[in-house]
Structures are given as structure tokens and as C-alpha cells.
Design a protein around this nucleic acid. Structure first.
Length: 572
RNA sequence: CGGGGUGUAGCUCAGCUUGGUAGAGCGCUUGCUUCGGGAGCAAGAGGUCGCAGGUUCGAAUCCUGUCACCCCGACCA
């Protein structure tokens, strides 16, 4: 493609509406344009990125035996009423009415459509298993679209649905998909982690998320490189510290701690590290009373875990200051286990504390030298806290915590939809059997944003080779000044393309500085500069976008050199 | 939906408090000079100041309504 033929507008300044880097750079590099909140146009260069991602996804899905179809974007309400989601899905569903006053929605997902298709098409167990997929535009009417492509309302998604006679077959396809997903993100050149997701709903159902690692990610992931464990921080369990609790050594003492409500303040005032302070949180109980949750001062409460306690009301709700005052006789910040008249559950780590500091249930007072079993009842212990870096994983290795952007999710649906929609086949014995389903999604357009979040610098985007809009950017310096340079550039452009390289030729009559700056902004990994200077010596200058080191390459060697570098980048 | 903020040229923003009919930088057009990291000079084009009412001799500016967008929260594969 020739830049001289392309109306390509870059922005030197950051548009005010863009909050995150990926959004800023996508706009500045002229890859997308916003039409309205959460809805974007893909510009020529941006669309090439999207298409490359799609292509990798498509190839790996095909390789894994999935069958590509394309379902309608607009879906009739009747199907959604069958599964009950017409009412349950809520405002996320964009509803449309046609001229006959019939209700439709713009599909936010396609379980209903695919299950309807399956019940019509699939009749015999001999046709199973089957895995259909599509790459489609979806619409979810997000309450608050934000972060550009990261949480857009209209977005491109690859969704796949598999149908099986039994769980064993589903397990097999699920594993195949997990493998395919790993290959997809690896091929795209992204650093990612596969994490175990919530599998609480139906017994036996499994679910894994694929996260691109980036500091700006919305999800926190705990992982261990040593043993391969990875999970969403909400899901990662913590374990009781090994060994017995230290024996009480200090005496229970009431100390004045005026206006010290936070662990930080109390710890600072008394000179006791936060690890030896007890954080006593009061929450609404399932029976209408209050429940105390005790954590070590340096730990934080995990709401998901807390909600699993039978004593605790769902959803988790902190007690109001009024109820805390009524119970403890003190404002918030002074609660403690000594003499507290409500059930108490301690985190495993908090339960191992001895001679610790805790609130005295009196305004402006704490206790030091508190000990379980002596000053307060021996606590019921449970896993209540978020994992911290360095905590052991379930496999034993030390955990690290990183932020991630969810770009893929696979899960076993079971018979949730097939049951509701009576999607059955005849089994070997001629009996009707409800099919078991799996469901596998990839946020294709979100991958584009995630890739930028993970790969950028002060100059602009640094595309991973496989998803760059072009393999090579050929930058011609001052073409107007030299017919020889122009001729040499044209020759290379033709030759390289014939050899299968995708080349973006900057043949514009623009100043070199502009070309360099815009090339960096666009972020094509391999940049070749051809100018009068080098041409005299028969060389062009090569620079890799990420490394930044320039090297001169003989024009005659350039093609082989580029192909080698491109393939090395794709393999890495 | 609750809270906050912003709508002025393609983009980033000033002007609004204290009403007098619109500005800067970037971008765009033309010319000259320049030409290896977002050039310089000169001359231009471009805005019913989101929209609708109202107050006023006069409204970008004050008032009311409305729409859009952004941020925080709740919510959410």
C-alpha cells in the first residue's frame, strides 16, 4: 500500500476523550475513529490489524476442527424468551422493534441462535461432536462504555459452541479449545496467562480465562511461573500458615489510641507492625445480625470468599456505622474480638496471631497483647483474604500478581441452553438425549487494544509482528529530490511484495522528520529507510521498532534480511 | 441509575466570573526558503460558540430546558 494514495491523518495531540493508551494511540495513529459512545469505525490501516487477528484465530479454529459459520446479528425475541434471557439479560440487550411491532435484539452473544440451529440440524449422536464458530460483530449496551476498544458497545468477537452426547466428549473438545487458544495468543506474539475462573455455578463445569498481561488490565491475576498455576485474584485460595500458633507471652493491656481508626494509624502510633494488628470487619449476617470477620492488618478482605460463608449475608454488605456503634459502643475503627457479642470468623493467618493488637470496642482504645483462646474465644477459621505476592500457590510455588486484560474465555455450559430449548439427538439406543454444550469466546477487537496496552512506548505503538498492519515500512526520504531514490524505492517495493512481504511504502512528499515520527506512531516492526545518502553506497537503513538499533543493509541483501527478521519475529 | 465535569475551527484549548457579535497552537490551502526525527517566513480558508427557549438595546458569556460526550460509583462476558 502506498501512503501517497491514502488519506491518513495522525494526531500530534492526544484526543481528550481517550483515557487509556490503547485508545489514545489507536486514535492518534489514525487506526480507528469514534462514531458515538462505544462505537467505532475501523480505518484502512486499523482494519488490517483486525483482519490479521481474525485470520490467526480462524486458522487455529479450523485446525482444531471447528466449523466456521456466520449467524445473524439480529435475533428474534422468541428465542430469548425460550431461555428466559429476554427478561433476565436486562438493559445490556439492545432491543429492536420492526415495522410489524415484532421484537428483536442485536445479538450480544449467540447461545440461543446456535442452540436453535443445533436442534434443527443435529439429530443423531453420530453427527457429534461438532463445534461451530463465527467471527461476528456483537452489541452489548454497556452501562458505561469506556477505554476505547477495551469496553466498546459494538465489538468483534469470535464465539464457538460445541455440542456433545456426553461429558467425556465435552471434556475433550474443551481441552482442544484450550490448546487452540494457547496457540492463538502465542502466534499473535502476546504475553498471556491462562487462569482458572469461577466454576462455582454448576458442579463439574469448568471455566478458564485468557488474559493478556498489561499493567492497565482490569483484572488482577495471581500466577506462579515455577509451577504454572494462574488464577484470578478473587479465586486464588490462601492457606493457613504452617506450624502452631505462638504461646501467649504478653498480658492483655488496654491502651489509648485516640482518633486512630485505620491499621496504619494504630500501627504507627503503637509502633507495632501491621502484621501483628487485627483488622475486625463487621458485616451483615445471614440471620439479620452482624458477623465479625477478622484479618491480619496487612491483609485485605476477599468479598467472593466472604460471601461463601453461611453466616454472611449475600451480597456482602458492610455494617452501617450506626449498627457498629450499637454493637461495640464505639465508632468504626475500634472493633475487636475481646468481648464482642457476635459470631466471629477469622482468616487463617489472623487465627495464627499471638500477642496482637486489636480494637477494644471503645472509642479511642485498643488492646495490645491480645491472644485467642485466652482473651477471646478460639476463632472459627476460613480463607477470607486476597492472596498477596509471595503467598504459596496451591501447587506450592510463590505467587506473583500481575494485571491482565481478559481476551478469551472458555467454559463448559452443560445443558443449560440445550435443556431449555430441547436440543436433543438420538443416542445409540434410539433414546432422546439432551446435548451437552461448550462455549468458547475470544474478543477479537479487544485483542487489538490489549496488544497496544502491552506493547507501546513514548513514540507510539510497537506491534507484535504477526498483528502489525504491514510487515515492513519502506520509508523514502525526499523522493522529490532524487529520481534515483524514487526508482530504487519503487523497485524494492515491487520486489518485496512479489516475494510475499506486506509492505507499506511511504512515498509521500513529506519531510523526513514527519515520516519518522509517524512511522514510530504506527509501529510497524520493521522499518527500512532509503535515501540519497545510503543509495550512493548501495545500502538502506534498517531499524526494528522495538530495539531501535539501526543497521545498514546492502540493497541486494535487504529482501533476504527482512524475511529472516520477519520470521524470527513471528517465531519469538 | 446516582455523583461530578465538559460542549467555542478537523485536533488541543483560551475567552465566560465583570454581556458589546470570537482567539491561540497544531492541522489544512498557496507561495518562497528548507529537507535524516512532527521546519521557517508570508498570505489564506475554516466557527449559526451543542441545540431550543428566555432575560437584555445587545448573549459564547446571564437564566431555564434539552441533547451529546467524558470521569467516579453502582452494574457487567
Amino acid at each position: 500500500m502506498r501512503l501517497s494514495q491514502l488519506p491518513w491523518n495522525t494526531l500530534k495531540e492526544t484526543p481528550a476523550e481517550a483515557e487509556v493508551v490503547s485508545h489514545q494511540l489507536l486514535l492518534r495513529a489514525g487506526l480507528i475513529r469514534r462514531l458515538t459512545s462505544g462505537i467505532f469505525t475501523w480505518m484502512p490501516l486499523g482494519l488490517r490489524v483486525l483482519r490479521r487477528v481474525e485470520q490467526v484465530v480462524r486458522e487455529e479454529m479450523d485446525r482444531a476442527g471447528a466449523l466456521e459459520i456466520l449467524m445473524p446479528a439480529v435475533q428474534p425475541a422468541e428465542l430469548w424468551q425460550e431461555t428466559g434471557r429476554w427478561d433476565r439479560y436486562g438493559d445490556l440487550l439492545l432491543r429492536i422493534r420492526d415495522r410489524h411491532e415484532r421484537d428483536y435484539c442485536f445479538g450480544p452473544t449467540h447461545e440461543e441462535v446456535i442452540t436453535d440451529l443445533a436442534r434443527r440440524e443435529l439429530r443423531s449422536y453420530r453427527q457429534l461432536p461438532v463445534n461451530y464458530y463465527q467471527i461476528q460483530t456483537k452489541f452489548r449496551d454497556e452501562i458505561r462504555p469506556r477505554f476505547g476498544l477495551m469496553r466498546a458497545r459494538e465489538f468483534v468477537m469470535k464465539d464457538a459452541y460445541s455440542f456433545h452426547l456426553d461429558q467425556a466428549s465435552l471434556d475433550e473438545s474443551y481441552a482442544t479449545m484450550a490448546g487452540a487458544y494457547g496457540r492463538i495468543f502465542t502466534r499473535l506474539g502476546l504475553r498471556f496467562r491462562t487462569v482458572e475462573a469461577d466454576s462455582g455455578e454448576i458442579g463439574g463445569s469448568r471455566s478458564q480465562e485468557f488474559h493478556v498481561l498489561a499493567d492497565s488490565g482490569e483484572d488482577a491475576i495471581a500466577y506462579c511461573d515455577a509451577d504454572g498455576y494462574a488464577a484470578n485474584v478473587e479465586m486464588a485460595p490462601t492457606f493457613a500458615p504452617r506450624g502452631p500458633r505462638a504461646a501467649p507471652a504478653a498480658t492483655l493491656t488496654r491502651v489509648a489510641t485516640p482518633a486512630s481508626r485505620t491499621i496504619g494509624e494504630v500501627s504507627g502510633l503503637l509502633g507495632v507492625p501491621a502484621q501483628r494488628c487485627l483488622k475486625t470487619l463487621l458485616v451483615e449476617g445471614a440471620d439479620g445480625g452482624l458477623v465479625a470477620l477478622a484479618l491480619r492488618g496487612d491483609h485485605t478482605l476477599n468479598a467472593v470468599k466472604a460471601e461463601r460463608l453461611p453466616q454472611v449475608a449475600k451480597p456482602l454488605a458492610m455494617a452501617s456505622p450506626e449498627r457498629i456503634l450499637a454493637l461495640t459502643g464505639a465508632p468504626t475503627g475500634f472493633a475487636g474480638p475481646v468481648g464482642l457479642a457476635v459470631p466471629l470468623v477469622a482468616d487463617h493467618a489472623a487465627g495464627k496471631l499471638a500477642d496482637f493488637v486489636a480494637g477494644a470496642n471503645a472509642d479511642g482504645f485498643h488492646h495490645t497483647g491480645v491472644n485467642w483462646g485466652r482473651d477471646a474465644a478460639e476463632p472459627v477459621c476460613a480463607d477470607l483474604r486476597n492472596v498477596e505476592p509471595g503467598d504459596p500457590s496451591p501447587h506450592g510455588g510463590p505467587l506473583q500478581i500481575a494485571r491482565g486484560i481478559e481476551v478469551g474465555h472458555i467454559f463448559q455450559l452443560g445443558t443449560k441452553y440445550s435443556q431449555a430449548m430441547k436440543a436433543t439427538v438420538l443416542d445409540h439406543d434410539g433414546q432422546e438425549r439432551v446435548m451437552t454444550m461448550g462455549c468458547y469466546g475470544i474478543g477479537v477487537s479487544r485483542i487489538v487494544a490489549a496488544a497496544i496496552e502491552q506493547n507501546h512506548d513514548a513514540q507510539g505503538i510497537v506491534w507484535p509482528g504477526p498483528m502489525s498492519p504491514f510487515d515492513v515500512m519502506l520509508l523514502v526520504l525526499n523522493p522529490k529530490n532524487s529520481d534515483a531514490v524514487t526508482a530504487a524505492a519503487e523497485k524494492l517495493y515491487l520486489q518485496w511484495r512479489q516475494a510475499g512481504l506486506e509492505v507499506l511504502l511511504d512515498d509521500r512528499d513529506a519531510r523526513p522528520g514527519v515520516k519518522f515520527a509517524e512511522a514510530d506512531l504506527l509501529g510497524i516492526p520493521h522499518r527500512v529507510v532509503i535515501g540519497e545518502r545510503g543509495l550512493k553506497d548501495g545500502v538502506v537503513e534498517y531499524r526494528h521498532r522495538r530495539d531501535g538499533a539501526e543497521e545498514k543493509v546492502a540493497i541486494s541483501d535487504a529482501l533476504a534480511f527482512l524475511i529472516r527478521n520477519r520470521d524470527a519475529g513471528a517465531a519469538a
